Simulated assay, not measured.
Amino acid sequence: MEERLCSELVARERSGHTAVVDTNLLYVWGGYMSIDEEEVFLPSNEIWVYDLDEGVWQVFHMKGEVPPSMSGTCGCSLKGSMYIFGGCDDNGQTNQMFCVDLTDGKYMWRKIAYELGSPPSPRDKLSCWVYNERLIYFGGYGHKQLTEFDSRNKSFVIDEASWVTDIFWGWNNEVQIFDPVQATWSQPNIQGRPPAPRAAHASATLGSRGYICGGRVTETRMSDIHFLDLKTWTWTEILPASSCPVGRSWHTLTAVSHNTLFLFGGLSADCKPMSDGWLIDVDTKTWTELKHPFQNKPRLWHTASPGKDCDVVVFGGSCDYILLVDKGHCNDALIFQTQPHPLFRICEDFIAKNVRSSEMLRNQLHLLPPKLLTAVQRRASFYRPSKKQSVS
């Protein structure tokens, strides 16, 4: 388990941001932070890139059809591109979609024009599964026009505190599919009993299943877990065979093996920031609490991305109840080891950690094959003394 802020340049503190991992790079975009007790959206024309091998941050200027600065947008990675949908900007929730190629070094935003079908209504704090080269969106909090609302439809729960004459705000459990190749939206014919409408839940894709866990609707924060079969479009609830995590929202869920998901953090039903980590075996339906060294680092509205060797890379988020305190935004990367590392990585990390203090290792380092030598030198950069200097 590692916590690193290795470079002099470090991404700003933030919550409600988007982050994806592609190869060995963590890409961070958007979100908001607090300045003088004011909520400030972070610039939408910059993307922060963290090298997970070297522990070094870089920031790049973005061009093209730059989206507005937002938080609560739903981001995902597909074939080297990052897609964002929805979110909340200065004008409220949106249902626009943007895409950026992460592989060409240009970081050129493109606003996606929909060719067919209707997108989901404006919303934020939703989730997405990537399957069969399509993006499948679920849930979220947003608004519908009076003409869109049907009181007989149980897929939308009204937030009574936010209702006005001709607009309804609330939570939903809708499933909608976007095909990036055709630029089309569609809605599958859903079978089974769907989970209750919700937002600020956690989701992950495992094989041909899309999982969701917890989240908030009205004043309730839930602990239930469901999966949607992305071939048959059938919902199934998992009834745990063991004790399970308490209900929460603003947490994360990450696939770490063919049958295991990792849950971390969030905000509990009594508004307590959480730092616990859990593994669920979806075959045996068993939850197991994972002991880790970050028990003193609660996080909510953070991001979690799968890294190499079943690691999970958690970045940013808040360590306080952001609706009350809103001063606890973070910018550290927490790397969770959820499975035993391969022998090669254990050896590589051992050499990288000790090469500075061991004269024998330094004298023998040049004997390594060139490719391995380069890898070890990069890892040694990761383990150099942390400067922990934030960007203002």
Results as ranks from 00 to 15, higher is better:
273 P>I: 09
291 K>F: 09
313 V>S: 03
228 L>D: 03
284 T>S: 12
229 D>P: 06
234 T>V: 12
284 T>G: 01
319 C>F: 06
292 H>K: 03
233 W>D: 07
252 T>V: 15
297 K>C: 08
312 V>Q: 00
241 A>G: 07
308 K>Q: 14
262 F>Y: 09
316 G>W: 09
284 T>D: 03
277 G>D: 04
243 S>D: 12
325 V>W: 09
277 G>L: 04
245 P>G: 07
295 Q>W: 12
236 T>N: 15
232 T>F: 06
314 V>Q: 04
305 S>Y: 10
312 V>N: 02
251 H>N: 11
284 T>H: 01
264 F>C: 01
237 E>P: 12
266 G>F: 13
299 R>W: 00
303 T>I: 06
260 T>H: 05
321 Y>R: 12
239 L>E: 14
245 P>F: 04
288 T>C: 12
248 R>H: 06
276 D>N: 06
261 L>F: 02
253 L>H: 06
274 M>R: 15
277 G>R: 03
298 P>F: 01
305 S>M: 03
248 R>W: 07
240 P>R: 00
288 T>G: 02
287 W>F: 10
310 C>Q: 05
315 F>Y: 04
297 K>H: 11
317 G>E: 02
283 D>Q: 14
276 D>Y: 02
291 K>Q: 13
300 L>G: 02
234 T>L: 04
257 S>R: 01
270 D>E: 11
296 N>C: 12
235 W>R: 05
277 G>K: 01
259 N>Q: 13
305 S>W: 09
239 L>V: 10
284 T>K: 03
313 V>Y: 13
323 L>P: 10
288 T>Q: 10
283 D>A: 12
268 S>V: 14
288 T>R: 13
315 F>R: 02
250 W>M: 11
241 A>F: 11
256 V>S: 06
300 L>R: 05
260 T>D: 06
233 W>L: 08
232 T>V: 14
238 I>S: 07
237 E>T: 14
275 S>G: 00
325 V>H: 15
230 L>F: 09
322 I>P: 10
285 K>W: 07
312 V>P: 01
294 F>K: 01
318 S>Q: 13
272 K>P: 10
274 M>D: 04
317 G>N: 03
238 I>V: 13
326 D>N: 15
301 W>Q: 10
279 L>A: 02
245 P>H: 01
